[in-house]
Amino acid sequence: MNLFLQELRKIWRPGVLAALVALGAVYYYIRPAFYIEYFNNGSQEQADFTLALDWVERYGPTIEQPEREEIGRRLAEEEARFADYAEGNTEMASRGITDFDSFEAFNDISYISDAAYQAAKERGDLALEDHVLYSGETNYFTILELRRFLEAWDGEGLPDPEEGSFGKTRRLDELCRERVRAMREDRIGRSVLPPHVEFSTSTYVRYLAVWCVVSAILLLSPTLVRDRLHRMRPAQWASRRGRRILSVQFMAALVSGLLLTLLNIAIYMVPFVSTGVLAFWRCPLHAVLRSYPWFDWTYGQYLLALAGLVLALSLGASGLTAALSQYSGNYVAMLLKAIPLIVLLTVLGVLVTTFAFYFGNYVTRFLAFPGGEILCAALLLAIGLASCVLACRAQRRREL
């Protein structure tokens, strides 16, 4: 145990940790922070999120028939409010706009950002549609999201499962069709979970996976190289533990990779959870950008599965790094191994975690069967662990 703790102290050096903290902070503000700051990116997503939070508190994770009728009455009330606004707006009345439908028919609306609206407002060159949509005087986006949700609940607005192509092969195509049928007929289309929450989750976890892999490689790369530079190997071999010390070092490396990944997940999840997404923990998933999940998990189960995927990727990277670092005689040689490993594993992390567990996942589409992302993460983990085991066996057979 003392030897194991000593190896952990060699890995968790203050200088290395300080560098990781600095790099992690820079990386967060360059990439993941954007998806927290613009989690509800625009008035439409904000309206969707606000409605969903209210529904999950009042109705639970799914909307049933009586609740659907209540939401239908809410839509009628919101449309009546919009009609009252249109009636009192001289410019809209002069153009024959009397309600929500006539407003949409009159305008070929192209949405602008809230910042662009404020800039146009200061210049005094707002179009009528921009003023109505973004002034805060109307409930346009609330009506839009209410209609979208009711269409999804009724099975409308979804592709016809008997038409078009959904997958890369006939088998994948049929599996996608089954999911579309389920969304039309079952509870999946009745989930209150906003679609953009699933998209933001996938994107945020993708960047988290990249950082977990990179930070594990950076933490573990110098350890065994430092031993070789200080000629520690002969002294270790001459000790009571002998060549078995390497197995303890690999165990310390894997435990360090695990602890670092858990720490990264905990830190990076704090701002994400602060958006309020945990309110949708029990909500079933549905389609994102016309890509469908191939399982019946809830959003909470999806988050746990993504965390497991990131852990597998990071542990696999930790094992490979520890196994390769023992063959580096100096820090330059270590970098020549670490840089290609970082590039390769970050690309793999992006491919595996982007829309993980959806038919639109890159690996699933390439392999043409669901679960390709799980297979890749499991293979990387197996390769990392096997590399450590083989390195220990080779060490014991080496001559002094």
Rank of each mutant, 00 (worst) to 15 (best):
Q236F: 12
S239E: 13
S239Q: 11
S239N: 10
S239K: 05
R241M: 10
R241V: 13
I245Q: 04
I245Y: 12
L246W: 04
S247Q: 12
S247I: 10
S247M: 12
Q249K: 11
F250K: 03
A252R: 00
A252L: 11
A253F: 05
V255Q: 00
V255H: 02
G257M: 03
G257T: 04
G257L: 03
L258C: 03
L258R: 00
L259W: 06
L260R: 01
T261M: 07
T261G: 07
L262E: 08
L262T: 14
L262Q: 09
I267P: 00
P271N: 12
F272H: 08
F272T: 09
V273Q: 06
S274H: 10
T275M: 15
G276T: 13
V277C: 14
L278N: 06
A279W: 05
A279S: 14
F280R: 04
R282V: 13
A287D: 14
L289V: 14
R290D: 15
S291Q: 14
S291P: 00
W294A: 10
F295A: 15
F295S: 08
D296P: 00
T298K: 04
T298P: 00
Y299E: 09
L303K: 01
L304T: 09
A305Q: 05
A305E: 11
L306Q: 03
A307Y: 06
A307Q: 01
G308L: 09
L309A: 07
V310R: 00
V310T: 05
V310E: 07
A312E: 06
L313H: 03
L315T: 11
G316T: 08
S318R: 03
S318I: 09
G319M: 06
G319D: 01
A322V: 04
A323G: 05
L324R: 01
S325A: 13
Q326D: 05
Q326P: 00
G329A: 12
Y331N: 09
A333K: 05
A333G: 10
M334N: 05
K337V: 13
K337L: 12
